[in-house]
Amino acid sequence: MQRGKGMRFVGDSRISADKTSQVPKDYSEYPGRTEAFWPNFLLKEWLVGAVFLVGFLTATVVAPPPLEGIADPTAAGYIPLPDWYFLFLYQLLKYQFASGDYVLIGILVIPGLAFGALFLAPFLDNGPGRRPPQRPIAVSMMLLALIATIWLTYESAAAVDWEARKEMNKPIPPGETVEIDTSHPGYAHYEANCLACHGESMEGTAAGPTLIGIEYSAEEIADIAVNGTGNMPPGLFTGSDEELEELVDFILSVNEGGE
């Protein structure tokens, strides 16, 4: 390949085929419209970085980092979920050919082949051509792996009810459990209808979220008690309207006391 001032390059703008010396060349020797890194190009990079940082910080302020309740090893009903970039491996292990007796295929063989091939890509794809059409096998393998990874991640994430998970696992500061007034007329209704899932002191269990720190109005609480919401089926409350009112009053009183 002939370029610039009659120099031959090996797919590189700086390393010529004939000269192996690493001594930097004079700027005039470079082909094309080059630009000095210091300070011209660095200034532009700096500006792009600043814009990126503003966008990143905005996103950070808009979406606070999630935190669930303190780890409770006895919470048997908890469905574990890894961070999103491990979901594809997590999903892979759910398939029959990659779990149970074949679990080694799921945890070692498939990931090992995939990441091993990625690691050794320069030696597996060792032809001289760099353009994708010149190396169809490498490119199509990568595309396949990419599609498989995206698809596995999607499959795994689509099966999760993110809103319900968030609702179920709100953090409650331990040691800050609220005082429950068991003499309140609504407590008896709570005990009869809600306690099994929402816990003895409304702290929540694996079956139902905490009722402390909720931001519902009286009408909404009454509606949820009767009609359910999310994973909560309708018809769990089996009392009269008057009892419902007392129950709602009780739940609200606990929430006011908690603040």
Binding site: P66, L67, E68, G69, I70, A71, D72, P73, A75, Y78, I79, P80, L81, P82, D83, N169, P171
Partner: peptide
């Protein structure tokens, strides 16, 4: 962070 999500994952 030692929350449930962290522990079980």
């Amino acid at each position: 962070p030692w929350d449930n999500k962290a522990y079980f994952a």
